[in-house]
Design a protein around this nucleic acid. Structure first.
Lengths: 142, 142
DNA sequence: TTGGCTGTAACAGAAGCTGTTGCATCGAAC
DNA sequence: GTTCGATGCAACAGCTTCTGTTACAGCCAA
């Protein structure tokens, strides 16, 4: 499968909104964001739509329309973005049910679920410790 | 993309090999493993082939052929399995290069790489702390 | 009323994974 | 040396997901 870049696109858009706001630009259109990400405006509208449903950004319609952050960038974590864009978890269980007459086939799924849950927990903790402001700061250093 | 079940399939196969060995069964054929996983033997041969190249299992050819663990299950970690099957990393960067004339477009990729590296590091640590023996024990409890 | 932008559906193309078939190759058993 | 069962691997189909694109209706400040 193609590597999942949803979190990347959404974070890029949020960092750009944060920087624009700091520069006095109230809102950005999907086209302006798309120009920075270098993709199609519809991709950005889809991504920002996810973030809007999660309450991370706000949208203004009509003339002078565009997008802005709903909170200060210090208070938006990558975990919220991750949940908003609904990226796939890193590991999946069996696609078809294993053979339940085999002791391994019977018990392997709950056992692996426990492992995968632990992995996801530490992953989420790491994402929760990083904010959009952190990302923007690191971005402007480079 | 379809959720990645490579790690699941490989771990299932290894746990089954470990249990069979404990029961006195020297080797298992790909067909026997496939019967437990409930899939096609070729899928299992592909997966066990990855594990063989990583030195985690051994294969015997000719009559009485089949697969066995190359080490005790206590000494095979899920991190080794993860690396062996070459599962995709959880996050990908931009598919096309961002606009380098934008300050965010210019610096976002190294910034996100840093975040993603940290996420992968804790994920790998968690996998390194779990062995095939751990998985088998949890499997037989259920 | 106008004009610019959002919201969303529909579709195409690409990529990856699973599953399947077919066949060459290997090697222990006889 | 022959046999026979299993591996190694290529090729292909089907499915799903993601990205990208076009098209168009809806919204609202000016």
């Amino acid at each position: 499968m193609a590597a999942n870049s949803r979190l990347t696109i959404a974070t890029h858009a949020l960092a750009w909104l944060a920087l624009a706001h700091r520069r006095g630009q109230e809102v950005l259109t999907s086209e302006q964001v798309a120009a920075s990400v270098n993709t199609n405006p519809v991709i950005i509208r889809r991504s920002l739509g996810d973030l809007r449903r999660a309450g991370l950004v706000e949208v203004r319609h009509g003339a002078g329309a565009g997008w802005s952050l709903a909170r200060e960038p210090e208070r938006i974590t990558l975990l919220e973005v991750y949940d908003a864009v609904d990226a796939q978890p890193p590991f999946g269980l069996h696609r078809t049910e294993p053979n339940l007459e085999c002791p391994v086939g019977r018990g392997i799924r709950p056992a692996l679920s426990g492992v995968y849950d632990r992995v996801e927990r530490v992953m989420r903790q790491e994402l929760a410790d990083t904010s959009i402001a952190d990302v923007l700061r690191e971005t402007l250093v480079n």
